[in-house]
Deep mutational scan, measured.
Amino acid sequence: MTEYKLVVVGAGGVGKSALTIQLIQNHFVDEYDPTIEDSYRKQVVIDGETCLLDILDTAGQEEYSAMRDQYMRTGEGFLCVFAINNTKSFEDIHHYREQIKRVKDSEDVPMVLVGNKCDLPSRTVDTKQAQDLARSYGIPFIETSAKTRQGVDDAFYTLVREIRKHKEKMSKDGKKKKKKSKTKCVIM
């Protein structure tokens, strides 16, 4: 069974824990209790493949930012979460993405942009803004509501699919490099 290491990042209060708990335990946590770091595991079937999701729910508070490099190193894919009623959390996505790329030393890291709290009427981040940002990053965008469960499975499952595509691409690139290195030079 394939294991996928997913990391949920975003500013404090955007609903990272609520999304994760909704996926794992099928219930909505409405009281806000700032996370330092929590880890969850769940076995699911995605596109006919049974897999184990190892999900790291991270601290959004700035005082825990020193811990970010460590979990970013171990993560295979990242859910970059903002709240649709919090423009600052949307603007912060850029910083999370840049930090992930720096730590992973790669421009090509599996990510999904997630606009959470889409059940709320007080939207300050337009869907088109988020779609445009995701398009500019070359990553999928999904709106979710941890409260109603809308888009929750889709967000995590899409990230797994992005990781699969990335692994497939990397193995193809690896095979191309191996083929090239088999060419021999004969000096007579």
Results as ranks from 00 to 15, higher is better:
63 E>F: 05
63 E>G: 05
64 Y>A: 00
64 Y>H: 01
64 Y>M: 05
64 Y>D: 00
64 Y>Q: 00
64 Y>V: 01
64 Y>K: 00
65 S>W: 06
66 A>R: 05
66 A>F: 07
66 A>M: 08
66 A>L: 07
66 A>G: 11
67 M>G: 09
67 M>D: 02
68 R>P: 03
68 R>S: 07
68 R>H: 05
68 R>D: 03
68 R>E: 06
69 D>W: 03
69 D>V: 01
70 Q>T: 08
70 Q>E: 15
72 M>N: 03
72 M>D: 00
73 R>K: 10
73 R>T: 09
73 R>I: 07
73 R>F: 07
74 T>M: 13
74 T>D: 15
75 G>C: 10
75 G>F: 06
75 G>H: 09
76 E>I: 14
76 E>P: 01
76 E>K: 05
76 E>N: 06
76 E>M: 12
76 E>T: 14
77 G>W: 01
77 G>S: 03
77 G>E: 00
78 F>P: 00
78 F>V: 02
79 L>W: 01
80 C>Q: 04
80 C>G: 05
80 C>F: 15
80 C>D: 03
80 C>W: 04
81 V>G: 04
82 F>D: 02
82 F>T: 15
84 I>K: 14
86 N>E: 10
86 N>Y: 04
86 N>G: 13
86 N>W: 02
88 K>I: 07
88 K>W: 11
88 K>C: 10
88 K>T: 14
90 F>R: 08
90 F>N: 04
91 E>R: 09
92 D>R: 06
93 I>D: 02
93 I>K: 00
94 H>V: 08
94 H>P: 02
94 H>E: 15
95 H>G: 07
95 H>W: 08
95 H>D: 12
96 Y>K: 03
97 R>V: 15
98 E>M: 04
98 E>R: 06
99 Q>G: 04
99 Q>Y: 07
99 Q>P: 02
99 Q>I: 05
100 I>R: 01
100 I>T: 03
101 K>R: 12
101 K>N: 10
101 K>C: 10
102 R>C: 07
103 V>P: 01
103 V>S: 07
104 K>E: 04
104 K>L: 10
104 K>M: 08
104 K>A: 11
105 D>L: 09
105 D>S: 08
105 D>Q: 10
106 S>A: 11
106 S>W: 12
106 S>Q: 14
107 E>A: 13
107 E>W: 13
107 E>G: 13
107 E>C: 13
107 E>P: 10
108 D>I: 06
108 D>M: 08
108 D>K: 09
108 D>N: 10
108 D>Y: 09
108 D>H: 13
109 V>S: 04
109 V>T: 08
109 V>Y: 06
110 P>Y: 01
110 P>E: 02
110 P>G: 02
112 V>Y: 03
112 V>P: 01
112 V>F: 05
112 V>R: 00
113 L>N: 03
113 L>V: 09
114 V>K: 00
114 V>E: 00
115 G>L: 12
115 G>V: 12
115 G>F: 11
116 N>W: 00
116 N>D: 08
116 N>T: 15
117 K>Q: 13
118 C>H: 11
119 D>K: 05
120 L>Y: 14
120 L>E: 14
121 P>D: 14
121 P>E: 13
121 P>V: 10
122 S>F: 10
122 S>V: 10
122 S>Q: 09
122 S>A: 11
123 R>N: 14
123 R>P: 13
123 R>G: 15
123 R>T: 14
123 R>S: 14
124 T>Y: 11
124 T>W: 09
125 V>Q: 13
126 D>N: 10
126 D>W: 08
126 D>C: 10
